[in-house]
Design a protein around this nucleic acid. Structure first.
Length: 493
RNA sequence: GGCCCCGUCGUCUAGCGGUUAGGAUCCAUGGUUUUCAUCCAUGUUACAGGAGUUCAAUUCUCCUCGGGGUCACCA
């Protein structure tokens, strides 16, 4: 036997679908997609949470709907305001903006109380006076008998005098048999047998505070959320929530349970795995574009496409294309993506971003040449900042291996010749100007480019690798170029 | 253990009965470059296993194996 509410909601949905041709606008308004992200503020924003948030955000945007944020702060002992702020800050960094006011569950006690009273009045929930000790005993007995641990319903139809000194919990009357089908947009229809998984679970604790599976259902309904995208660790909670929806006569939303992200050991990604704090990626020099692009491709795909702008994500994302299997968290591709975005970013934007990494180029007259020369060489903004420092700082030491390789034969003589040309030149601005000087030396001394390039590189940068020398010299200017050449000749002669 | 989900290159994935099983990343090699990086080219590597269904299975069904999730007065 199918659980009746599913049938009703399905029929209702079909009815709407059929009439949508005639009443397009009416239908559209009724079906405005509302998604949500509902973290509990127990720590920073997690990479896995961010991905489901991103999916929810994209799906809402694609449909011209709303993406709302709800803070699930009902566990007073574990929550902190700092955590809420950290989550909000991460969203801000990434440019993911929630629609409307943020809902805090801690401020909604009277709403939950109202619905709990309603269920009590309707006989759909009841007070249970079982003590914690009794519960433990019951579980131990069940385990000893190799039975499933479950509440035995002893207060379900209780009418006598309740025991003294017990603050009762409120339990909901869950169906004891039958089938509950979760219609999941990612995994398909999943059916559970009530006797396998259900018992009269607690919806309000002894102190009157409501529990998770109850408030989730109440809030999702009250907030108008009709498309729930969340981690598939919630899949087994869903039947319980359906019980609440049905007891309250609420519409059941569409569910999309997204597979977990696993660590290298194949386990659910947790805070112990390191680098799961979204803001740590900012510290490490990743751009929001790269992180978001990386995450959207973890468990979701659109053909062979790898690069997605925010606009493309919003246009192309569809939860039906979410993968069914878990993916392992490996950041190899993130580096590539980040390099790609840095390479293709405007110098203005880079200048702005670099201020977070102690590089202020705003008034640097050669910042265009500098960034053009360096931005295709960095995987992260931290690296880019480091590369910039290496170019604009006069080298204080010379790499021994590089010296050995570069300063052979008449290297000093060549450097001297080049230094003289720089000194004598009047107009030196562009890389090309310096390039002509190098060319002149090469031609006059009848040597290969490497003969001048290697020692000059060591003189200018202190090592064998780096950007084009003509660009380096244009960036640091004539005086600094001559200084570095003279320094090297003195030190290495 | 019960229940539920999942199983294509190392990793992210395409595939939706007939493909030399594709792309990306990583790695390797070559080219370009005064060097390194970028860029370009080439290459190595995958359908967990076994039965069925079918003219034909990576694709459908079942079983086995493997992995994961979840079983609270936590969310």
């Amino acid at each position: 036997m199918k659980y009746p509410f599913n049938c009703i909601s399905t029929l209702f949905y079909q009815h709407l679908t059929q009439n949508s041709l005639k009443f397009g606008n009416f239908y559209k308004r009724l079906h405005m997609v509302v998604t949500r992200f509902a973290p509990s503020p127990t720590g920073y924003l997690h990479i896995g949470g961010l991905r489901t948030a991103l999916f929810s955000y994209l799906w809402a945007k694609k449909n011209g709907g709303k993406f709302v944020l709800r803070i699930e702060d009902t566990d007073k002992a574990r929550n902190s305001e700092a955590a809420t702020e950290a989550i909000l800050k991460a969203f801000e960094w990434l440019g993911l903006e929630a629609d409307g006011e943020i809902t805090y569950q801690s401020q909604r006690d009277e709403i939950y109380a109202k619905y709990i009273t309603q269920l009590l009045d309707e006989g759909k929930a009841y007070k249970c006076y079982m003590s914690k000790e009794e519960l433990t005993t019951l579980r131990e007995t069940q385990m000893a008998n190799k039975e499933r641990t479950r509440y035995d319903g002893r207060y379900r139809d209780f009418e006598g005098t309740p025991p003294e000194g017990i603050e009762p919990v409120i339990r909901i009357k869950a169906p004891l048999s039958g089938e509950i089908v979760v219609k999941d947009g990612v995994k398909g229809d999943i059916s559970f047998q009530a006797e396998d998984i259900l018992d009269d679970f607690v919806i309000a604790r002894g102190d009157g505070s409501p529990t998770y599976n109850f408030v989730v259902a109440v809030d999702d309904y009250l907030m108008g959320i009709n498309e729930v995208i969340r981690g598939d660790d919630h899949l087994s909670n869903t039947p319980k929530q359906i019980v609440v929806y049905e007891a309250l006569g609420f519409n059941i939303p569409a569910f999309y349970h997204v597979p977990m992200i696993h660590n290298a050991q194949g386990k659910k990604l947790s805070k112990r795995d390191g680098a799961t704090d979204v803001m740590a990626y900012k510290e490490m020099g990743y751009t929001p574009e790269a992180l978001l692009n990386f995450l959207v491709r973890l468990g979701w795909s659109h053909g062979d496409q790898e690069i997605f702008s925010m606009e493309e994500m919003q246009r192309l994302f569809d939860p039906k294309d979410i993968n069914k299997s878990a993916s392992i968290y490996s950041t190899e591709k993130l580096d590539w993506l980040n390099a790609h975005y840095i390479k293709n970013m405007s110098n203005t934007e880079l200048t702005e971003l670099l201020t977070s990494y102690d590089i202020v180029l705003t008034s640097h007259d050669k910042k265009e040449i500098l960034l053009d020369a360096l931005k295709e060489r960095a995987k992260t903004l931290v690296q880019l900042a480091q590369l910039i420092k290496e170019v604009i700082t006069t080298p204080s030491e010379y790499d021994a291996k590089a010296v050995k390789k570069a300063f052979k034969g008449n290297a000093i003589e060549i450097l001297n010749a080049f230094g003289a040309k720089v000194s004598a030149a009047e107009e030196l601005k562009l890389p090309h100007d310096y390039h002509l000087l190098m060319e002149a030396v090469v031609n006059e001394m009848e040597i290969g480019f490497g003969k001048i390039g290697n020692p000059l590189r060591v003189a200018l940068l202190g090592k064998m690798s780096g950007p084009g020398l003509d660009a380096v010299m244009a960036i640091i200017g004539k005086e600094e170029t001559m200084l570095r050449i003279a320094n090297a000749i003195t030190a290495l002669q």
